[in-house]
Every structure is written in C-alpha cells, then in structure tokens.
Nucleic acid binder design. Structure first.
Length: 726
DNA sequence: AGCACGCCGACT
DNA sequence: GTCGGCGTGCTC
C-alpha cells in the first residue's frame, strides 16, 4: 500500500486547489472525480495533479473519501484547457471545472453510455418486402428511405412523425436490423456546391491535421453551412470528430435535424442550455469516448472532450452569445481557437459580418481569409437605403416611405418586417405636468410599459408593478406612455393596415422554445403579412416571402458610449437586411435615420463590410481600443456605490507598482453607466494593455494582491477579461 | 461559498 | 440565566 498526494480542484470561490492523501493512486487517476472531506462536510472535486510533495506538511492532509473510478477520467488535454481557462479568465479552477463538467459526471454514480440509438439498415428480408410491396404505407416509406439513403440512426427515423410504430414493426418482422457502423461520413441529400463553395472547401480541407484558423467571410445566403458540412464530412471520413459551435438562438431543432439528416450514419450530439442533465451527460460521455462523430452546440460545448478532434467550426463567430456574462466570463470563440492550436487542427470562423478582432487577424495574416462573395440562393443582394426622417413627417414614428413600401408588399402578397430593438409598448410612462417617470426602484433604469399584460416592468431586474391610474407624485391622471416599443408598433401598424395580419416576434411573444418555433413556423407558412421584431428576428432564418425590411431607431446606437455599439449596429443591420429577399423575390431595406450621410449607412447601402471594417479599425487604432489593445475590467458591486468605489481604489493602489512594470494603464474607478442593478450599486475600473500577453502577466500578479485585499463582506468583485462592453 | 466560532440584546 | 443577531476566519 502506497500513499500518494492528490491535488483536488473544488467548486469554491478560492484561487487555490487542495491537497489530500490517497492510497493506490496511479497516473490514470488524474482527471478523475473524487469525494473529499472539506471543512466540516464533504465535497466532490476533480484530481488535477499528482504532486510529489504537498504545499502543506503531509500530516495536515486529510485522506480522500473515494476516487470515482467507474467513470472514465477526463483526458489530459481537457484538463489543460480548463486550466488555461481558469488562468486566462482569472477564475478559480474548481469553478471552471464545475461549469464545464455536466453535473451527473461530478456525482459518484457512473454514467452508463448505453447504446440507445442503433444504426439501422435493410435486411435481405426487408429488400424482398420492398420489392414485393403493392400498397403505399408507412412501413414502405421507411424501407424505401433506408434503401435509398443507406443505414440510418433510429432517432432519425423516429423524428419523422408517426414513424416510430413502423420502425418497431419493421424490426420485429426482420425487415430492418441494427448494423455495424457503415460509413459515418456518408452524406444524404447534399446539394451541388457553387464554384466558390467548392474552392473554399478545397482551401480549408488542404490544411487538415494542422492548426490553421480560417475566417470564412460569406454574405448572408452564400451557403456557409454547406461549406461547414462538407468539411465535417471530410473530417469524419478521416476518422476524426468535428466540433460545431453555433450561437444560442441559432441551435434550433431544424439545424439539428439538418445536420443529423445529412449524416444519417453518424452519431450527432447536440448540446444546448435547455437540455436536461441526463442528456447533457450522455452526449458529453459519447463525445469523450469517441463514439460521437459530431458535436453541435452552443458556447458551453467548447468544453466537450473529443479524443479524435479534427475540425472546429464557429458559426456566426461575431455573435455576442459566445461570451458568457456571469460566473466564468469566457469567450467560447477564443477558447475554440486556443483549443484548435492545442490539438493542431484547423478552425473555421464563419460570418457575414465578422468581428473586428477576427477581421483584423485576417488582415495581418494570423487567420486565412476565405470569401464567399455571391449568394447561393437568391438573385441579388437587397437594395438598401436610408430614409431621412428630418425631411419627413412621421406617423407614430413610422415614415410615409416605410408605410408605402409595406403597402406595396401587402398588395403583392409578400411579407414585410419592421425591426425595432425595443420590447414592450413604450419604454417609459411619464407625467407631463410634474415630470415623474416610471423608474425601477432597484435599478438605474426606467420601467417599460407592457400594455398587453397591463404591467410596468424593468427589463434589467424583472421587477414588475401595476400601472398607476394617476401620477404617484402629483396625482395628475394624464400620465402617458412616451416613445415606442414593439407592442405599440404592432398596434400602430394594425390600425394603419386593418386587413393585414400583424405578428410580433420578440422575447415576450417567444418566451419559450416552443413558442419561438411556433412563430417561425407561422411566418414560414405565410400566415403573417407584417412582422414586428427585435434582434431575435435579425439572424438565422430565411423566409422566402419576406421582401421588405424597415428599421426604426437605428441611430441610438450610432453615438452610444460603448465603442463597440456601431460595430454591433452594422452587423445587426446587415444581418437583418439579409432577411429580405432570400427567395425568388428581390428584397429592399429601408433604415430610418437622421444621419443618412453617416459612413455606416453609406457602407451599408453598398453592402461593403470590408470598407466599414477598415473605417472602424482605423478609429480603434487611433483610440487604442481592441484589437489594438487588450482590456480587462475589475468590477465591484455592493449595496452602496461608495463601497465599490472605495475597494476599487484600494485595488488600483495595489496595481500601480505593477502597472509600470508591465506597461499597462490602470484607469480610475468609475460608477457603471447603469449604476444600480437589482438593488446593488456597481462600479468598475478599466485596465488597458498593449497586448494580451502583457495583460495576462499583469493580471496574474495583480489578482494575487486582489485576493489578499480583504473586501467588506457585502462586496462582490470579479475580473472580466476581454469584456464585451466597456 | 458554507459553516463554524464568538461576543452582545430580549425572552422562557 | 439562555436563544440568536451577523462580524471574521478557515477550509488541504
């Protein structure tokens, strides 16, 4: 019996791991879950190292309770990634592990990797039955599908409605049977590639087995997904696994089915936040054991262990949902790149409107740019033009130009979308005689009027109140909604076009996944004439009958305090414009603005992303913003903003001696633009470094000081490395 | 984060 | 005389 030391990462907010003694430990126990005594209780952690000696006298170490040896250990490269994540984002390792591991895996019970989804194929008897068939039936359709498409996962057959009894019946009759993995790379129903797509596939495919990032810049409708699928097929054919990351709302059952149907014999694991614990654990284990060929998922799936990883795809790489905004504030796109380098595999970042960071990386040659300039589906890009609202009288915020454009679509039986990034009926309720406005009692924000359910609601903390009949301050009964939200716009358009079917698509109308699906379905079937939508409508889906997009209130992002606001506006407008005219019909986009000559709108008119990116990058360079600098924010919140500011001042004082040495600039603490959020008052401090390595080196040292800086009990703080908003 | 210990007010 | 407030200190 030999006693060894194991180093355990525990899910507690402390920047250190804890050492324990254990019997009969082997190198294979690295990456295993372990039950340990901790304080007065017990905890489950992960063995992250087998050190020769502990940083504490051995007699003060406690023995572990049990090492969980039934489940497979997490591989070394996975450990290296979570360790990197913890280091880079300055977050305790144990908490990173707790986030990245499905909860089931951390528990003591082993996850059985049951073969629940067998690959089915026609038997000889099945072929006979098919040949002898007389009448059309469910069973027959099933057999024909297998005959034409080759072997297929049972789950896929089940997806086609009502086919499940037919599958069971055919199995019983011996017409179909589980078969050994045929060719998982086999594709079903793949369209012919355009020359451009073909070229892209060849260029990227040639780098298989090497680390090489690609920026696949393809206009909306150019068929990026098709390029991904071909590359995935190549990877699978080489016996490798592919990881496909997509933004949060983009992972719909449609996409899952599209991928799964394309590779009927492959095992596709789909991972998203709505998934149950069991399904998530199962997918994780299937990927880890190399039994799944494709992992398709949102940001969290970047942590899926893949022993034979051969390709990473990040779709819509500019999308904000890749960055996590609480807990471990990681960016899945950036981690994906790190992982591709670690594993020596190519990575494809795809977008019609790449992030300026990625665009710049392509400019400097760190990434290889591959362009898809032509739309694969529609004839032309939509005509885009600004509507000068200074020269027009508006009707409830909508210009006559827009209304006429909608009218024309109605007459032609086509769909219009009016895009307004503001939920609710009106952004505020106000008293004209005393100036009272509906403020949230817990936040520095206004309560939004939701007339549909007769409530005032704070969009930041979800505080909810009834609508007062009179002004709470002066008693005036003439309190009024000010400004316009989607609900009011829906009402306005309904009044103006009484015969049209107006459909609102925002977070209130599509609260659940199924509501969102139902809305998409309704639009797809042409059961709406005018859509009123927020950014939810900006991405993802093509509606063949949608030929007009009108944009309201775009200017508000033009001169916003956050330096990334214009970038996001341009991306959003380009994406939303991409909704118009994806079918046979040409599209048109109108943007209401007070600044029709603003370069952003000029570039948008010409669909010139490259030019806009160049302009923005020049501005960023002048102002020393990313990607020409690396940022981190130290954020603090407490019941009183003074507490936050005071602690941040101490933190800054601790930083000053280091800042010189690393060449970083540490700014003064400032209250956040929205100081109060959910009864806490927030402040932050910006750190600006010339580049990421300098920032990293500085943060590593600074955070040691920060942990030693005892804050008052009621104060919370965190570091946000590469923040999305400054 | 938990969860202890620890030293000062109104209750059986 | 005790129950309990939440201040501070530790967890291998």
């Amino acid at each position: 019996m030999s006693t060894a030391i194991v180093r355990v990462a525990l899910p507690i907010p402390l920047p250190q791991s804890f050492d324990y003694t254990a019997e009969n430990v082997s190198a294979g126990d690295l990456g295993r879950c372990v039950r340990v005594p901790f304080g007065r209780g017990e905890k489950t952690g992960l063995i992250v190292a087998l050190p020769d000696c502990a940083d504490l006298p051995v007699d003060r170490l406690k023995p572990v309770i049990a090492i969980q040896r039934e489940a497979p250990a997490l591989p070394a490269d996975w450990l290296a990634m979570v360790e990197f994540t913890a280091r880079y984002y300055q977050h305790p390792l144990g908490e990173v592990v707790a986030m990245a591991l499905p909860p089931r895996l951390r528990k003591a019970d082993a996850v059985a990797g049951a073969e629940a989804d067998p690959l089915l194929d026609l038997t000889d008897a099945g072929r006979d039955a098919l040949a002898a068939s007389k009448r059309e039936s469910r069973a027959l359709a099933l057999l024909r599908r297998l005959a034409e498409g080759g072997p297929c996962r049972r789950s896929l057959l089940r997806n086609e409605d009502g086919a499940n009894p037919a599958v069971a019946d055919a199995l019983k009759r011996g017409w179909i049977a589980p078969c050994m993995a045929a060719e998982p790379a086999a594709m079903a129903g793949a369209p012919t590639l355009t020359d451009e797509q073909q070229a892209a596939v060849e260029i990227i495919g040639a780098e298989a087995g090497k680390f090489q990032p690609f920026l696949l810049a393809g206009v909306t409708g150019s068929g990026k997904t098709e390029v991904y699928l071909r590359l995935v097929a190549q990877a699978i054919a080489r016996g490798e696994q592919a990881l496909m990351l997509v933004p949060e709302i983009a992972l719909t059952p449609q996409l899952e089915t599209r991928v799964a149907n394309r590779f009927p014999a492959a095992r596709v694991v789909s991972l998203h936040s709505a998934l149950g614990e069991a399904a998530r654990s199962q997918g994780f284990v299937q990927a880890m054991e190399g039994r799944a060929e494709i992992v398709l998922g949102t940001r969290l799936s970047v942590f899926t262990p893949l022993p034979r990883l051969g390709l990473i795809v990040v779709d819509e790489e500019h999308d904000a949902s890749y960055k996590q905004h609480e807990g471990v504030r990681y960016n899945a796109r950036d981690l994906a790149i790190w992982r591709a380098r670690q594993r020596g595999v190519p990575i494809v970042l795809g977008s019609a409107t790449p992030s300026l960071e990625s665009w710049h990386a392509a400019d400097t040659g760190r990434y290889r740019r591959v362009e898809l300039a032509n739309r694969a589906v529609a004839i032309t890009l939509p005509r885009v033009r600004p509507v000068d609202v200074r020269r027009e009288k508006l009707q409830h915020g909508v210009s006559e130009h827009l209304l006429r454009a909608i009218e024309a679509r109605l007459q032609r039986g086509e769909q219009s979308l009016v895009f307004l990034n503001r939920r609710g009926y009106a952004p505020v309720l106000s008293c004209p005689s005393c100036g009272w406005v509906s403020r949230c009692p817990h936040c520095t924000a206004n309560m939004v009027l939701h007339l549909a359910d007769k409530r005032l609601r704070c969009h930041h903390c979800s505080f909810d109140a009834g609508i007062p009949l009179a002004c709470p301050d002066c008693g005036d009964q003439d309190i009024q909604p000010f400004g316009r939200g989607t609900q009011r716009l829906e009402e306005t358009l309904g009044e103006r076009f009484p015969d049209a079917r107006v459909l609102r698509v925002d977070r209130d109308a599509a609260r659940t996944r199924s509501q969102w699906e139902a809305l998409l379905d309704k639009i797809g079937k042409g059961e709406a004439d005018i859509l009123v939508g927020t950014q939810m409508m900006a991405k993802g889906h093509d509606f063949p009958r949608l030929t007009f997009v009108g944009v309201l209130n775009a200017d508000s992002s033009l001169f916003a305090a956050d330096f990334r606001a214009p970038e996001r506006l341009f991306q959003q407008l380009m994406q939303v414009g991409g909704r118009a005219g994806r079918g046979e019909l040409p599209g048109e986009v109108m943007v209401q603005t007070q600044y029709p000559d603003h370069p952003l709108y000029k570039c948008l008119e010409k669909h010139d992303f490259a030019r806009y990116a160049a302009l923005q990058l020049e501005e960023r360079k002048q102002a020393r913003f990313p990607p020409y600098a690396a940022n981190a924010l130290l954020c603090a919140n407490a019941p009183e903003v003074a507490t936050s500011i005071a602690w941040l001042k101490d933190a800054r004082a601790a930083a000053m001696p280091l800042a010189q040495a690393y060449g970083v600039q540490v700014f003064d603490p400032v209250p956040m633009r929205m100081v109060r959020l959910a009864r806490r008052e927030r402040a932050q401090l910006l750190v600006e470094a010339p580049a990421r390595p300098a920032l990293q080196a500085f943060l590593t040292e600074w955070s040691r000081h920060l942990w030693a800086l005892k804050p008052p009990r009621e104060l919370r703080w965190h570091l946000d490395v590469d923040p999305a908003e400054v």
